[in-house]
Amino acid sequence: MSAVLIAVLVLLGLGLVFGILLGYSSIRFKVEGNPLVDQVDSLLPQTQCGQCGHPGCRPYAEAIVNNDEAINKCPPGGQGTIEALADLLDVEAIPLDAEHGEEQIKKVAYIREDECIGCTKCIQACPVDAILGAAKQMHTVIVSECTGCDLCVEPCPVDCIDMLPIETTLNSWQWPVPKSGVELIATDRHPGIALEADA
Protein backbone atom coordinates (compact mmCIF):
# COMPACT_ATOMS: atom_id res chain seq x y z
CA MET A 1 0.00 0.00 0.00
CA SER A 2 2.77 2.33 0.95
CA ALA A 3 4.52 1.53 -2.35
CA VAL A 4 1.47 2.69 -4.26
CA LEU A 5 1.30 5.81 -2.15
CA ILE A 6 4.97 6.56 -2.76
CA ALA A 7 4.51 6.06 -6.48
CA VAL A 8 1.52 8.38 -6.55
CA LEU A 9 3.33 11.00 -4.51
CA VAL A 10 6.45 10.78 -6.66
CA LEU A 11 4.40 11.13 -9.83
CA LEU A 12 2.48 14.03 -8.35
CA GLY A 13 5.73 15.69 -7.36
CA LEU A 14 7.22 15.17 -10.79
CA GLY A 15 4.05 16.52 -12.41
CA LEU A 16 4.21 19.58 -10.21
CA VAL A 17 7.89 20.23 -10.93
CA PHE A 18 7.49 19.89 -14.69
CA GLY A 19 4.29 21.90 -14.66
CA ILE A 20 6.07 24.76 -12.95
CA LEU A 21 9.01 24.42 -15.32
CA LEU A 22 6.80 24.51 -18.40
CA GLY A 23 4.69 27.35 -17.08
CA TYR A 24 7.76 29.40 -16.32
CA SER A 25 9.44 28.77 -19.66
CA SER A 26 6.29 29.59 -21.58
CA ILE A 27 6.43 33.04 -20.04
CA ARG A 28 10.19 33.43 -20.08
CA PHE A 29 10.74 32.30 -23.67
CA LYS A 30 7.57 33.67 -25.20
CA VAL A 31 8.00 34.26 -28.93
CA GLU A 32 7.00 37.79 -29.87
CA GLY A 33 4.99 38.08 -33.05
CA ASN A 34 4.65 35.36 -35.62
CA PRO A 35 8.03 34.06 -36.78
CA LEU A 36 6.41 32.64 -39.90
CA VAL A 37 5.61 36.14 -41.14
CA ASP A 38 9.30 37.01 -40.94
CA GLN A 39 10.22 33.89 -42.85
CA VAL A 40 7.70 34.58 -45.59
CA ASP A 41 8.73 38.20 -45.71
CA SER A 42 12.36 37.25 -46.20
CA LEU A 43 11.41 35.19 -49.25
CA LEU A 44 9.59 38.06 -50.93
CA PRO A 45 11.65 40.27 -53.25
CA GLN A 46 11.10 43.46 -51.20
CA THR A 47 10.35 45.65 -54.18
CA GLN A 48 7.46 47.11 -52.16
CA CYS A 49 5.67 47.55 -55.47
CA GLY A 50 2.15 46.74 -54.27
CA GLN A 51 1.33 44.64 -57.33
CA CYS A 52 -0.06 41.96 -55.04
CA GLY A 53 -2.66 44.40 -53.79
CA HIS A 54 -1.03 44.85 -50.41
CA PRO A 55 0.84 47.99 -49.40
CA GLY A 56 4.28 46.40 -49.36
CA CYS A 57 5.91 43.02 -48.97
CA ARG A 58 5.40 42.60 -45.25
CA PRO A 59 1.63 43.18 -45.40
CA TYR A 60 1.48 40.55 -48.13
CA ALA A 61 3.49 38.18 -45.97
CA GLU A 62 1.10 38.82 -43.09
CA ALA A 63 -1.86 38.19 -45.37
CA ILE A 64 -0.34 34.92 -46.57
CA VAL A 65 0.23 33.72 -43.03
CA ASN A 66 -2.89 35.04 -41.33
CA ASN A 67 -5.55 35.26 -44.04
CA ASP A 68 -4.60 32.38 -46.31
CA GLU A 69 -3.82 34.75 -49.16
CA ALA A 70 -2.72 33.04 -52.37
CA ILE A 71 1.05 32.77 -52.79
CA ASN A 72 1.05 33.50 -56.51
CA LYS A 73 0.50 37.23 -56.47
CA CYS A 74 4.07 38.44 -56.62
CA PRO A 75 5.17 39.16 -60.21
CA PRO A 76 8.62 40.56 -59.31
CA GLY A 77 9.44 37.37 -57.42
CA GLY A 78 8.06 35.19 -60.16
CA GLN A 79 7.87 31.45 -60.14
CA GLY A 80 11.01 31.18 -58.03
CA THR A 81 9.39 32.99 -55.13
CA ILE A 82 6.20 30.98 -55.49
CA GLU A 83 8.18 27.77 -55.28
CA ALA A 84 10.13 28.97 -52.28
CA LEU A 85 6.89 29.98 -50.53
CA ALA A 86 5.25 26.68 -51.42
CA ASP A 87 8.25 24.91 -49.97
CA LEU A 88 8.14 26.92 -46.76
CA LEU A 89 4.40 26.70 -46.23
CA ASP A 90 4.18 23.13 -47.48
CA VAL A 91 1.49 23.85 -50.03
CA GLU A 92 1.18 23.16 -53.73
CA ALA A 93 3.17 25.51 -55.98
CA ILE A 94 0.76 27.24 -58.36
CA PRO A 95 1.52 29.29 -61.48
CA LEU A 96 1.74 33.05 -61.19
CA ASP A 97 -1.60 34.87 -61.13
CA ALA A 98 -1.46 36.94 -64.30
CA GLU A 99 -4.06 39.31 -62.88
CA HIS A 100 -1.37 40.98 -60.82
CA GLY A 101 1.11 41.34 -63.63
CA GLU A 102 3.58 39.15 -65.41
CA GLU A 103 7.07 38.21 -64.53
CA GLN A 104 9.42 40.61 -66.22
CA ILE A 105 13.13 41.02 -66.51
CA LYS A 106 14.71 43.14 -63.81
CA LYS A 107 14.49 46.81 -64.50
CA VAL A 108 15.59 50.01 -62.86
CA ALA A 109 14.09 53.46 -63.13
CA TYR A 110 15.93 56.04 -65.15
CA ILE A 111 15.10 59.74 -65.13
CA ARG A 112 15.66 61.66 -68.33
CA GLU A 113 17.31 64.43 -66.45
CA ASP A 114 16.96 67.32 -68.85
CA GLU A 115 13.20 66.81 -68.89
CA CYS A 116 12.83 66.65 -65.12
CA ILE A 117 11.08 69.70 -63.70
CA GLY A 118 11.97 68.97 -60.09
CA CYS A 119 8.46 68.32 -58.78
CA THR A 120 9.61 65.74 -56.13
CA LYS A 121 6.54 63.59 -56.83
CA CYS A 122 8.66 60.57 -57.67
CA ILE A 123 10.71 61.03 -54.52
CA GLN A 124 7.56 60.81 -52.46
CA ALA A 125 6.47 57.71 -54.34
CA CYS A 126 9.74 55.78 -54.00
CA PRO A 127 9.38 53.17 -51.25
CA VAL A 128 13.12 52.75 -50.72
CA ASP A 129 14.28 56.37 -51.02
CA ALA A 130 16.28 55.59 -54.13
CA ILE A 131 15.59 58.92 -55.83
CA LEU A 132 17.75 61.87 -55.06
CA GLY A 133 16.70 65.47 -55.68
CA ALA A 134 15.04 68.56 -54.29
CA ALA A 135 12.22 70.87 -55.29
CA LYS A 136 12.97 72.58 -58.59
CA GLN A 137 16.21 70.63 -58.84
CA MET A 138 16.86 67.82 -61.25
CA HIS A 139 16.28 64.35 -59.75
CA THR A 140 18.19 61.18 -60.34
CA VAL A 141 17.85 57.51 -59.43
CA ILE A 142 20.45 55.76 -57.32
CA VAL A 143 20.59 52.67 -59.47
CA SER A 144 22.09 50.42 -56.81
CA GLU A 145 19.15 51.15 -54.48
CA CYS A 146 16.36 50.96 -57.06
CA THR A 147 14.18 47.87 -56.75
CA GLY A 148 12.46 48.44 -60.08
CA CYS A 149 8.98 48.65 -58.57
CA ASP A 150 7.96 51.32 -61.14
CA LEU A 151 5.88 53.21 -58.56
CA CYS A 152 7.63 56.42 -59.58
CA VAL A 153 6.54 56.23 -63.23
CA GLU A 154 2.88 57.06 -62.73
CA PRO A 155 3.21 60.19 -60.57
CA CYS A 156 5.66 61.90 -62.93
CA PRO A 157 3.80 64.86 -64.46
CA VAL A 158 6.13 65.11 -67.45
CA ASP A 159 6.58 61.38 -67.99
CA CYS A 160 10.35 61.53 -67.88
CA ILE A 161 10.94 58.24 -66.05
CA ASP A 162 11.77 55.13 -68.01
CA MET A 163 12.07 51.61 -66.71
CA LEU A 164 15.20 50.30 -68.34
CA PRO A 165 16.29 46.67 -68.18
CA ILE A 166 19.48 46.20 -66.20
CA GLU A 167 22.35 45.83 -68.60
CA THR A 168 24.39 42.66 -68.41
CA THR A 169 28.05 43.33 -67.83
CA LEU A 170 30.92 40.88 -67.87
CA ASN A 171 30.57 40.60 -64.12
CA SER A 172 26.82 40.08 -64.09
CA TRP A 173 26.74 37.75 -67.07
CA GLN A 174 25.92 34.19 -66.21
CA TRP A 175 25.99 30.88 -67.88
CA PRO A 176 22.75 29.87 -69.52
CA VAL A 177 21.04 26.54 -68.97
CA PRO A 178 22.79 23.89 -71.07
CA LYS A 179 20.67 22.81 -73.96
CA SER A 180 18.77 19.79 -72.85
CA GLY A 181 17.27 17.11 -74.98
CA VAL A 182 18.93 14.67 -77.30
CA GLU A 183 20.14 15.68 -80.73
CA LEU A 184 19.37 12.52 -82.59
CA ILE A 185 20.69 13.46 -85.99
CA ALA A 186 23.85 15.48 -85.51
CA THR A 187 24.45 15.90 -89.22
CA ASP A 188 21.30 17.95 -89.58
CA ARG A 189 22.89 20.62 -87.46
CA HIS A 190 26.41 20.29 -88.74
CA PRO A 191 26.24 19.47 -92.42
CA GLY A 192 30.04 19.72 -92.56
CA ILE A 193 30.44 16.44 -90.71
CA ALA A 194 28.69 14.38 -93.29
CA LEU A 195 30.60 16.00 -96.12
CA GLU A 196 33.96 15.40 -94.52
CA ALA A 197 33.05 11.84 -93.75
CA ASP A 198 32.28 11.29 -97.41
CA ALA A 199 35.55 12.82 -98.48
Binding site: P127, E145, T147
Partner: peptide
Protein backbone atom coordinates in the same frame (compact mmCIF):
# COMPACT_ATOMS: atom_id res chain seq x y z
CA UNK B 1 18.53 38.09 -51.40
CA UNK B 2 21.17 40.58 -50.33
CA UNK B 3 19.48 43.30 -52.36
CA UNK B 4 16.06 42.40 -51.00
CA UNK B 5 17.33 42.59 -47.43
CA UNK B 6 18.88 45.93 -48.21
CA UNK B 7 15.65 47.17 -49.74
CA UNK B 8 13.68 45.98 -46.74
CA UNK B 9 15.96 47.86 -44.38
CA UNK B 10 15.59 50.98 -46.46
CA UNK B 11 11.82 50.58 -46.71
CA UNK B 12 11.47 50.12 -42.99
CA UNK B 13 13.73 53.09 -42.34
CA UNK B 14 11.58 55.16 -44.64
Amino acid sequence: QRKADHARIRFEAR
